[in-house]
Simulated assay, not measured.
Amino acid sequence: MPVPHSFKLNEMVQHMPQDKVLWIDLQPTLHCLNKRVAQLLSRSFAVQRWSFQHDLDESCSVATVHDLLRQTLVASPEPMHLVGHGISGTVACLFAEKYPDLVKSLTLLSVDTLSVNHWSSHYLDMRSQLPSSRQAILRHLSSLLFSHQNPRAVEVLPCLLAKCLDNEFTQGSIVNQQHIPDLNTPKEVPTFILNGESDFVVDTNSRDRWSKSLKSGDRFVCMEKGRHFFQFDQSQHVAQLITAFIQMVPGPWIDRELSSNDFTSLARS
């Protein structure tokens, strides 16, 4: 029986340090926005990219993605550190809750506890409410998702978003409005959340929502002036923060009493 779903695992470095990072990538078109951070992380870890692919017009579910991801991680000799942005982070978080023995740590970029808060769902809301063309809405959305300091990125992003909507895993399109549960930090997996201070998609109240489930060893950082794709504008700083977190897992800080500095801070450039 043919399997319509497929994935590809691309190793980004040749050396194999002890810690292994798996970048979950359900929207390969947008990986160019994550690539610089992944390259910087590869200086300290063995970084691999798990890229999900599917046939056009093919229905898909989170369960299908989890099954394929589990096949990859079961084959690994040790648990891996998962990293994901947006809906990729949402699916990775649900996976870590379901299979904690396969995940050493979890890093989420621009992820809210509210699973409806993704750029694609905001696009669909705009499309249903505004009497504007698709191109005009995507251009407006791009100006909200990216810093105005990157005019070239704002110019290119509408084309990337359009391709992603047509071909890749997006809530409200490929997944056919299926219900995705809201998130909590996985009970058995150290979790690091980085959200942008000026993110149009994940509002600033996400810190309060996440704080209800943060445990000892977890951390929340608000990136100063960061928008939804802050990892592109602040790649060096983001890579440093992720590296510091992963290097502390496991560590004595996980077992000590939680302080306010462990789970919320404002990252300044």
Rank of each mutant, 00 (worst) to 15 (best):
V3W: 02
P17R: 15
V21S: 01
V21T: 01
V21R: 00
L22G: 00
I24Y: 07
H31V: 04
K35Y: 07
L41W: 08
S42C: 02
S44C: 06
S44L: 03
A46N: 14
Q48F: 09
S51L: 05
L56I: 11
D57C: 08
C60M: 12
H66M: 04
D67A: 15
R70P: 00
R70F: 01
T72K: 07
S76L: 04
E78D: 15
H81Q: 05
L82C: 08
V83W: 04
H85R: 10
G86Q: 01
A96N: 11
K98V: 03
P100M: 13
P100C: 10
P100K: 10
D101R: 15
L102G: 01
T107S: 15
S110Q: 04
V111Y: 08
D112I: 06
T113Y: 05
T113Q: 06
L114W: 00
L114D: 14
L114N: 12
S120Y: 03
H122D: 09
Y123T: 04
D125N: 13
L130I: 05
S133V: 09
R139S: 03
S143H: 13
L145G: 03
S147A: 10
S147W: 11
H148F: 07
H148G: 06
A153N: 01
V156H: 01
C159G: 13
C159N: 12
L161D: 07
L165F: 15
L165H: 00
L165V: 03
N167P: 00
F169V: 11
F169N: 10
Q171K: 12
Q178P: 01
H179A: 12
N184Q: 13
P186G: 05
E188P: 00
I193M: 09
E197H: 05
F200H: 14
V202L: 00
D203N: 12
T204Y: 11
T204K: 14
S206F: 08
R207P: 00
K212R: 15
S213Q: 12
S213E: 08
K215I: 09
K215D: 07
G217Y: 08
F220Q: 12
F220R: 06
V221K: 11
C222P: 00
R227L: 02
H228A: 10
F229G: 01
F229I: 03
Q234M: 07
H237S: 09
H237W: 08
V238C: 10
L241A: 14
I242P: 04
F245K: 06
P250R: 15
P250V: 12
G251C: 07
G251M: 10
D255K: 04
E257K: 08
S259F: 03
L266A: 04
